[in-house]
Design a protein around this nucleic acid. Structure first.
Lengths: 244, 244
DNA sequence: CGTAAAATTGATCTGTCTCAACGTGGGTGG
DNA sequence: CCACCCACGTTGAGACAGATCAATTTTACG
């Protein structure tokens, strides 16, 4: 099996051998970062693009009154700031949640990647999937009940972590505090606590010390109204030809 | 002044004359579509990319229980479905809100555009700004009060419409019903009605028959906690060099 | 005019928040 | 190695923003 990045990008479409080699080179030197460290701050114009190899990170914004809204979780294989390559200034912050292993990719290397058609498309695909995920989060917060929101998040993370081999039948590490889940869902942490208790009482999940077990995946999906289409996994399974 | 699309893309960076000519050609033949028509449905893989020249449209998803969540407004200069160029299947619907003038751009033309470096970057910029807007909407729905949410939306539309020349000092056409605003904000339409009344009572806005007047722009921005950085306007004003 | 969609109003209900304790477990320094 | 501490989780009570239900009024338009 190839490295994590290759594995993720090939979810979209197979890559030429030369591209794989470039990715292998790219993912060489990683550095370790402790939990709850800001990786990038609003206003920054970072000189490198960061790629998560291990651990959880998040995008977030702070409001004047001190509230925090988490807008995305970044898991192994995710780029933190591909967009500043174009946009110049970060409009939000990125912080680690758990200890992370991170690769710093120089801009020149990204440029090199975007000059290879298959890789360029794969990177574009990454940022479009991020966007689609954001849309689903908006639906989640805007239109679902507290219980459904949390359940939906757990279903999404199951599929995303499965895609990078970080689950074992329905269970995975979820290194989040209830406060962090609350800041993600637009709920108070007290309410998140009660929601989790209800999900446990319904025998849908088990969650203790960051270890999540989904006891009945189909039921949790049905309960939360989960439809995986927005993750755009399994794109090349249908053996479609690239379109003109 | 050039056409609308050129104007919008040059918000990001000036374009070579040849690119402008290509854009002028692209925007030739538009078609008219009535209000409240679906342009694209979930599951579609459209053969053209649609560009709005006039009118309002929106992205939305429907939930099993019949709720609708609107996830974006599309205004003149916005692409509807640039992403299906890569992702293949739509994961949401797009419908007109008001009558619209729309250009159908064949995929081949998009491909041609992405082969010109300045245009490719400009298109990428468009989709990154869409993503940044989505993040701000998430913050809006997740962390702000009903009054602030609506006020924030009105501030955002002011800047976006200003960028395409569709405002006149603090006022613009807002062809939305209160139900549509409600489906956008994750509120009931009855509550939206009351929120609008309060904004009017505070002498922040006037809104009647789709004509919005913001009576005190700075106060409305302050009230809603509006920070325009996420729209990434005025990128090349600072005369930055393109980075390597 | 007549009709349907949109806006408005009032009354009531409920999900979620806030405030205020209290419990608990893992890490650390004495 | 124990005791303390602090972050995290849990519980209860009360308050409130916003939902729901049910009319009624206004507006747009054929």
């Amino acid at each position: 099996m190839h490295n994590l990045l290759t594995r993720k990008l090939e979810t979209f479409a197979p890559l030429p051998e030369a591209d794989r080699r470039l990715l292998d080179q790219t993912v060489q030197r990683a550095r370790l970062i402790g939990e709850r460290q800001d990786l990038i701050r609003e206003g920054d114009d970072p000189s490198h693009v960061y790629l998560i190899l291990e651990g959880f990170a998040c995008r977030y914004k702070l409001l004047p009154d001190g509230r925090r809204q988490i807008m995305a979780y970044l898991i192994p294989g995710d780029f933190c700031d591909l967009h500043v390559f174009i946009l110049r200034a970060m409009d939000h912050n990125i912080a680690t949640l758990s200890p992370c292993r991170v690769v710093d990719i120089p801009r020149a290397r990204i440029l090199e990647m975007t000059e290879r058609p298959a890789l360029a498309r794969a990177l574009w695909w990454c940022s479009l999937v991020d966007e689609a995920t954001l849309r689903e989060w908006l639906v989640n917060i805007g239109a679902r009940s507290a219980e459904q929101r949390v359940a939906h998040l757990l279903c999404e993370l199951l599929l995303r972590l499965e895609a990078v081999g970080l689950t074992s039948n329905g269970s995975y590490d979820l290194p989040l505090t209830q406060v962090e889940i609350a800041d993600t869902m637009g709920l108070s942490h007290i309410h998140v606590n009660r929601v989790l208790q209800r999900l446990r009482a319904e025998e849908l999940i088990t969650l203790k010390n960051g270890a999540l077990v989904i006891l009945d995946v189909p039921r949790l999906k049905a309960f939360s109204g989960f439809n995986p289409n927005y993750l755009h996994l399994a794109e090349h399974k249908g053996s479609k030809e690239p379109r003109r």
